[in-house]
């Protein structure tokens, strides 16, 4: 889900950078230094989780799990996922430099939105109910990321529309798997350590 340098037009790149700066600023405002160790260790776990290859039919896919990141980290998911993108671009050559902002908005934006919409729902009711909402949140964030990537390409030129449509259809199984994994992860966390979903929010309230 990483867009590379050179594929997008200037206005899209600049718009992405501005939105990303805003998102990072919002996220950092919710992160006093006391919470940085927790956010950093969780950010590192999402980085490692994104390297896991999950079998899908004859091949395998790797997941973003940005929905889960949003559910656990809230607004802090924005800077946390941004840091992950910076490290991937610099050390692995995934994505690019000028498109960091766009990629951050595409991946962290849906994460934060999933957190805002579903984080209350996953801590309510039985763990199974929480897991169902977690699954919805995971699939929602993953789907929204695919749509956002496609939209960025379409804004940059009509020639990208067929590719964007094809890729969206091809990603539907990935979206479902993201949902299933997120649901299972939420179920386990609800059973073992429900504080996981509050750890970065207590300071606020």
């Amino acid at each position: 889900m990483h867009i590379v340098d050179g594929a997008l037009t200037g206005p899209v790149v600049i718009g992405g950078a501005v939105l990303a700066a805003g998102g990072i600023a919002m996220g950092l405002r919710q992160l006093p230094l006391e919470k940085i160790p927790a956010a950093g260790v969780l950010s590192a776990s999402f980085f490692v989780a994104s390297l896991i290859h999950v079998p899908l039919g004859p091949s395998s896919v790797h997941l973003i799990l940005n929905g889960l990141a949003g559910l656990v980290l809230g607004w802090a998911a924005f800077p946390a996922l941004f840091v992950g993108l910076v490290l991937q671009a610099v050390f692995f050559g995934f994505g690019g430099l000028t498109v960091l902002g766009v990629n951050a908005v595409n991946i962290a934006g849906p994460a934060v939105l999933a957190g805002l919409l579903f984080s209350r729902l996953i801590t309510r009711g039985t763990p199974v109910q929480g897991a169902v909402w977690g699954g919805v949140g995971g699939a929602f964030a993953s789907g929204l990321t695919t749509v956002a990537v496609a939209a960025c390409l379409m804004l940059s030129g009509d020639a990208f529309i067929p590719a964007a449509k094809l890729v969206f259809v091809a990603h539907i199984p990935v979206i479902i798997i993201e949902g299933l994994l997120t649901a299972a992860a939420v179920y386990l966390a609800r059973k073992v350590k429900p504080e996981l979903f509050h750890s970065l929010r207590e300071v606020q309230s």
Partner: peptide
Amino acid sequence: TYRSYGYLVGMMLVRAL
């Protein structure tokens, strides 16, 4: 498999916290 991987990720987050 998907459930087990989900538990794996969940457990990683719990231990990370």
